[in-house]
Design a protein around this nucleic acid. Structure first.
Lengths: 151, 151
DNA sequence: CATAATTCCTACTTATCCTATAGGAATAAA
DNA sequence: TTTATTCCTATAGGATAAGTAGGAATTATG
């Protein structure tokens, strides 16, 4: 499961992605997305330090995305907030770490399964971006065959 | 990430899966797989209560799988130990729960992404079983084209 | 310049979960 | 009866999650 932190981050970023060039106050985002204000503030601080958002202080200040929505993947946001996507450290691509209890990693069947799992899920999460959270058009998985598809 | 509990469970069950009809003592499994003995004991108690393993007390006692390795999926073991596989409660099939902060689930773009992610990962984890952890033959993802395939 | 609006920073809290560990009771085989 | 084993209850230390509080710093605006 994602932490609330990661979930709130994605919701807030999805909100920003709908108007990527507008600066919004944290309070407004918090209210719109039902996120505790102070918690969201802390989350956005992290996202700023990771250069995902760009913020401005003072009156008429606020936050906005640092890049185009399509250039910020869901997977990256999750990694920033919750760490690796893989289910075992030894199956992580971005943050590999050996299991200290494993005598022979190359022969570990569990690892191979977990690598397959991590590839499957990262395929989805790295393909989808904040643009998908903002758009009104259906995601790939939501598409149905139409007459156009059938030619 | 999986908890140590889930990882140890899978390793122990993988060990049992290599000789499904033999009863092994917990101590032996703990040593073979580098799992803290008392911790493993607690884990196996849970697995017994969930009818994954079958245990016998006393001298010459021990544990063995309650079913054939191929009938125990990796996904199910993870669900028993760590809970739902989905990244959000609202994207879980086996343990759906609405997000209390979500005003309109049907319109939630994030949910749709998370449903796709959960389908992708469950596809792998529910397809693979303890038999895959025991076998010496390559998993699907490990297969390479051979002359037979090209034949 | 004063004021109001806003983010930024530091610290704190509270509860829950994770990862075990300890000791002995119950059971079963030899 | 002894020995090997699982079963049960209890405990514990540390980390993490999910916030909360208060004020400092910054900026636009009248």
């Amino acid at each position: 499961m994602l932490s609330m932190k990661a979930k709130y981050a994605l919701k807030a970023l999805g909100y920003l992605a709908r108007k990527p060039d507008t600066r919004f106050g944290i309070e407004r985002i918090a209210e719109a997305e039902n996120i505790p204000y102070k918690f969201l503030e802390a989350i956005l601080t992290e996202l700023r330090k990771s250069n995902v958002i760009d913020s401005k202080r003072g009156a008429a200040g606020g936050v906005k995305l640092a890049r185009a929505p399509k250039d910020i993947s869901i997977g990256d946001v999750i990694r920033l907030m919750d760490g690796p996507i893989a289910l075992l450290p030894c199956a992580s691509i971005t943050r590999y770490r050996a299991c200290d209890d494993c005598p022979d990693e190359a022969a570990c069947r569990l690892r191979q399964v977990m690598i397959d799992a991590r590839l499957a899920i990262a395929d989805v999460l790295d393909e989808r971006t904040l643009a998908d959270l903002a758009s009104r058009s259906p995601l790939p998985s939501e598409r149905r065959l139409t007459d156009d598809d059938l030619g």
